[in-house]
């Protein structure tokens, strides 16, 4: 639609004016809207500003929601609240429970965690050794890490 004031530009704003229960609708372009120094525009701004504010605030929460998407299956927090179903192991991030598991632990899972932690420990040790230029000791640690990584891959 063409702006009803300048009759040139594309109208992107719709103004509705209510006077004595009579409705007037005017379609205008942004240029004309900005040129209008009319009281009406002032009141529109008053109206629009809080709307923009809420919009951007909503945008912020949208961002937070986006962060709460399960990285593995893509389920959002909102979907979780409706489905109350885990689609994959990483949906566990949505669980909000005060009660904590107290029971069986998978054995190989425990061993794997142990190996992963051990590798991490040795890797940081390796960095220190290299920084201290203790290359002979570092070589030994490096081989140990290599072995450990081999084990954890074989296990899988």
């Amino acid at each position: 639609m063409i702006c009803q004031i300048c009759k040139k530009n594309e109208a992107t704003i719709c103004m509705v004016k209510m006077t004595n229960n009579k409705k007037d609708t005017v379609y205008i372009c942004p240029t004309c809207a900005s040129q209008m120094e009319d009281q009406l525009i002032g009141s529109i701004n008053q109206l629009l500003n809080p709307m923009f504010e809420t919009f951007f605030k909503a945008g912020n929460t949208l961002e937070i929601d986006n962060n709460q998407i399960c990285p593995t299956c893509g389920q959002t927090k909102r979907e979780w609240q409706e489905s109350n179903t885990l689609n994959c192991k990483d949906c566990a991030q949505f669980i909000d429970s005060e009660v904590v598991h107290n029971g069986k632990i998978p054995k190989n899972n425990k061993e794997e965690l142990y190996v992963i932690n051990l590798i991490k420990e040795k890797e940081s040790h390796l960095k220190i050794l290299i920084a201290e230029e203790k290359y002979e000791e570092a070589a030994i640690i490096r081989d140990e890490i290599k072995d450990l990584k081999g084990v954890s891959i074989d296990d899988k």
Binding site: L86, C88, V100, I105
Partner: peptide, 30 residues
């Protein structure tokens, strides 16, 4: 369970235990 565990790595959460589709089964899953 122990025998299966040697072939499959289970969905297990440090805090919430065995993970299941329905949250009413998490923890022990028993």
């Amino acid at each position: 369970d122990d025998a299966l565990e040697k072939f499959y790595s289970y969905a297990y959460h440090e805090k919430y235990g065995y993970l299941t589709s329905c949250p009413t089964n998490i923890g022990t899953g028993v």
